[in-house]
Amino acid sequence: MPDLLEIQGLEVEVEGKRILQGVDLTVPTGEVHALMGPNGAGKTSLGYAVMGHPKYQVVGGDVRWKGESVLGTPPEQRARRGLFLSLQYPTAIPGVTTANFLRSALKGLGKELPARDFLKMVREQLALLKMDQAFLSRYINDNFSGGEKKRMEIVQLAVLRPEMAILDETDSGLDVDALRTVAEGVNRVRSSGMGVLIITHYQRILEYITPDRVHVMAAGRVIASGGAELVSDIERTGYDPLLRAAGIEEAEAAGAVSG
């Protein structure tokens, strides 16, 4: 039996403004789901809310993981229970080396390793993501290019080995080679049985990672779900038919808050 990430009727506010209007979405471990939708649909907000960012206030519904609600627990506890969020704009922490950051994270997750094994594992993952070993001693995300930050998120995904990962636009800003490298990274963790929710508004990355399910969000809720074929539908016709079917005006779909 796979474990489930169950998002049920999730309503979220940011600074008093309603962003999510009752999102329903279930992702089992061992599957890759894609979450698509126009800008401002609430995709990024969903990721933040699931991971417990304090700015995203849950005002209704539930987020359950392995049958238990995670609401009200701090992000680090969600991480310890096996959740992971890759950020669209990973944060730089000047002065904190990648090695130190990853070591602290593993310690926090209760997955500490002997120094030698730790270094071996991180070095391997850096090599797989075609990143220089020097990144170990560079400050995490500090003066990294956009692409380097995205690769580093995948290095972290592989090193920290969560059970359920939400990847927020990990594909944006990557050139074709980088995109392929990152997609390979995701496919590797996928084969380990991890559940993955890929947030994207391009179809590009889905040429390399075939999703088991595709969900479309607009105006703060999921308006359509289907198999991988939904991706090619969207590619052909855009989001308009789906929006119309859901009775959503274009202005409303775009929302006021990006992401």
Binding site: M51, G52, H53, P54, K55, P74, P75, E76, R78, A79, R80, F84, L85, L87, P90, T91, A92, I93, F101, S104, A105, L106, K107, G108, L109, Q156, L160
Partner: peptide, 16 residues
Amino acid sequence: DEQLFYCQSRGITREE
């Protein structure tokens, strides 16, 4: 706060 959230989302406690 974003630095703290980033750390926390990777399993690091807020204090740490």
